[in-house]
Every structure is written in structure tokens, then in C-alpha cells.
Design a binder for these strands. Sequence first.
DNA 1: AAAGGTATGTTATTATATAACACTATCTTT
DNA 2: AAAGATAGTGTTATATAATAACATACCTTT
Lengths: 169, 169
Amino acid sequence: MPPSGSPISPSIASRLHDHNHCISTAMETAQRICSDNGVRLTQLREQVLRLIWQSHRPLGAYALMEMLAEQSTRRVAPPTVYRALEFLLEQGLIHRINTLNAFVGCTHPQGDHDNNFMICEECGVAIEFCTEKIQHDIKDSAAQFNFTIKAQSIELVGLCQACTGNKDE
Amino acid sequence: MPPSGSPISPSIASRLHDHNHCISTAMETAQRICSDNGVRLTQLREQVLRLIWQSHRPLGAYALMEMLAEQSTRRVAPPTVYRALEFLLEQGLIHRINTLNAFVGCTHPQGDHDNNFMICEECGVAIEFCTEKIQHDIKDSAAQFNFTIKAQSIELVGLCQACTGNKDE
DNA sequence: AAAGGTATGTTATTATATAACACTATCTTT
DNA sequence: AAAGATAGTGTTATATAATAACATACCTTT
């Protein structure tokens, strides 16, 4: 198990990992964070978070909406989903992938909340990463322009390890 | 004048620059690139590019559409704009800012086409930047995951030099 | 139980983007 | 210059993503 706060391991890119472990860890962490922050991880919010964590592929709000509708008998409208997503974003439990208009679970919900992803255009997996070096360089660049960073998003689109292999061989 | 292929100077962040020069350079460069690539910078495409270059603020497709409609008597529909935008993106003459769903002129349309911007949430200016260092570190990170990068986008949202000053003082 | 705040339901609308097909302009070959 | 091919634009309809505004339900504290 990787140390808490670290990015997910490269093996996720190859889909060779115990994803049930990802899910249970994420749900437990979410409970703790919400309780620490004095906010409520309601049934709906938990349900949405669990759906997002079904894989490492970002899910769109409308896909989530349909999945919710399947799970419960009631009809689910966009604001229901968007409000849950907004909450989860605020608590740092998920990320929004701008290039996809989609949402994915955060693998280190306690640390800095930069948005750094490698997104496989073949299988859809989004791998969160972060390195001290890049952070340092970016701060440097911003300083050159006297720019005050409030939010950061790096999105690399391409092919993950597994899909690169499939293409080449 | 900065050497061809270099990012725009920090002074753009402070809005203290000769923007007419930006526009004329951009339009001339666009003509040359299209001619080099054997593609046509039609009237419509040129018109859209010029509108985008009216400032360093990214413009949404529908805003562009309204501006086009004002300039000509004919009615302008979304596909008209989106097709022109698609062309300009393909030729590397503009960038799409994912966090804003908007488009902005490219300041170095001949080089690598990474998408690295600092976006001021106050005045809306998007400053393009790129550094060897960041590029190097990002390639490094991708290599660790055996990830093949096809497109890259860094978007920093915050306050530009001018707007930081306004807030502090 | 009442009051106040938080969360969700509901309806309507706005914003962004594309599909499909028709028509026009431009280029190429003769 | 005419014919055919290709590229570009017009037009209508629709898909996809997100929010506004207001009503209702649910918790918590008194």
C-alpha cells in the first residue's frame, strides 16, 4: 500500500491492481474528512462518490445521473448530481477533468489540491500524478509573470502503459 | 519585438503593450502558415481569427458568433463558428482554454503546440507561457508511468500582475 | 413542537457543441 | 470554358453540459 498522500502507483495504468481496495480506502477517507470538516457525507453524496470510484475513468455528470436513476426508483435531475459533485469537489474528494467535462476520485484527498492527470484516450483511465519538481517549476514561471496561482490543472492526454503496448505490438 | 517562437512578454499581463502590433503580427503569421501548409485562410476564418485577437482574453464560441453576426448582415449559426475554430486549432493558430470553454490566439504558432496558460480570473487575460524545465519534468513524469503524451494542457487560474496589485493596494 | 439551517426535489432554462444534409465556391483536368 | 471533384459554408435540428429559481423535506437546537 502506498503511503497516505502519495499519488497512485503506476500499476493502476495497467489495470493490474486491487480496485476494491481503492474503493474502500476512498470511502473510509471520505467519511473521515467530512467528519473532520464538520460536513455531512449524506447518502446521496456517498452514493455519487462510490459511483465515481467504480473505476479510474472520469465519469460525466449525466452518466452519473443515469447510474443513480438505475439504482433508485426515483427520477434524478441534473441539479441533484451537480450539487453532490460540487460538495465532493469542495471537500477535495474528487477532481474535475476539464478536457473531458468529467469527474474522477482523488487519490490523495488530504494534500494540495492541484489537478494533475494523465488521461488515456484509449481506455479512458485518468492517472493522478504530482511531483515536487513540476510544482517548483510552475511556481517559478508564475513568479516571472508576477502571477498569483489560485488553482492549477495539468492534463496530459495520450496513451497509458497498457494501451501503448496494445498499439505497438 | 521578441524573437519568433518565444512566449509573449510579461508586460502583456499588465496590459501595457501595443496590441495592434500583436494583431498585425498574428494575422501576417497566420497567412504565412496557411500558405506554407497549403490550406486556405478564407474570409470567414480570417475574420474569426481577427476577432479572437481583439484581446488576450479567451472568447467563447457563442460570443464570437454574436460578434460575427454584428459584422455581417447574414445570420451566423454555431457550426459556422465551430468549423472556423476547428480549422484554426488544426493550424495551431489558436488554443482552446479548457477551464473556460473559450479560445485565444496563439503567440508562437510555429513551435510545439502545448497549451500552457496563466488565466486571470479578474480581468480574463490568458498569458501563454512555456519553459524547457517544465517540459522536461513533465516528460519525466510521463516516462515513469510509461505514458505516451499526445497533447498537453497546463492551466493556472489566478490573478495576473495588474490584478494582484489592484487587490493588494 | 417550533424555528432555522441544510439538503434535496422539481421545473425550466441557459450554455456549449455536433450531426446531417444542402448548397456554393474553388480548384483541377480536360 | 465546361465538367467533375473537393473544400467550404449555410441551415436545421439535436445532443450534451450546467445552472437558476423556487418548493419541499430533513435534521438540529431549543
